[in-house]
Design a protein around this nucleic acid. Sequence first.
DNA 1: TCCCATTGTTCGGAAATATGGAACTATGAT
DNA 2: ATCATAGTTCCATATTTCCGAACAATGGGA
Lengths: 121, 121
Amino acid sequence: MRPLIHPAIEDVRPEAIIHALSDPNRAAIFAKIMRAGCVQACSAVAALGDRVIPKSSLSNHFKVLREAGLIRSERHGVELRNHSRWAEVEERFPGLLPAIINAYASNAPSGAQGAGPSKGE
Amino acid sequence: MRPLIHPAIEDVRPEAIIHALSDPNRAAIFAKIMRAGCVQACSAVAALGDRVIPKSSLSNHFKVLREAGLIRSERHGVELRNHSRWAEVEERFPGLLPAIINAYASNAPSGAQGAGPSKGE
DNA sequence: TCCCATTGTTCGGAAATATGGAACTATGAT
DNA sequence: ATCATAGTTCCATATTTCCGAACAATGGGA
């Protein structure tokens, strides 16, 4: 098992962040990590809306978020705890995260607050 | 030749915009269209920085921007004129475009044909 | 008119990336 | 030691992207 990779904030590339959040599932995961008080185990987001995400896919989504510089993951026993790196990213790219999270939220169909996968149009 | 597809602003989905701009080339093209006074022929961006983009790739980049709702293209004789839909998109997703364009611009090394207004120097 | 230069689109195959089931690893508990 | 839990890795399939080449559409001559 490879060690977890966390880029230094100055190495974070805007396209990596934007690409990571261009997937509604990942954006929803990231929004959830933030809303959860900045700490969230991976398994806590096993489902988004009505859709169950396979754990191999989930693992990959967390990896993308991590390597983009959006979250920091620490092992605690058998689980990972994921912290949002919001403050760092916000300082480096002001307004980027709020605007993206907001865009998804304002497009959300029902009471699904935050960034959720759209289930129709 | 199919007609050009321009989604109504209310049908524009945030993930489409974010995905379109998650490619640095497309973000640079979009930024250039804005800087050029909101009208630009496709051929005017045949090269970005030192890289020449094949025209089939360029055609596809413009298509992605268009169908994401970021630009509007009109045929004028043999060429297309591309207008940014900034104002509409800004109203629908406030702050999204400035934040993304700014993120690329603030990351651009000197001289690189980056996206957006330069920040300092 | 016919020909041709210019602009952009479409096609098709190769390369890259994403998805998810199954097997695996690592840790804690009994 | 054995088991359960939480994530990772492997790998085959599916989807997307890239770009050269052929094509289409328009305008300008001769």
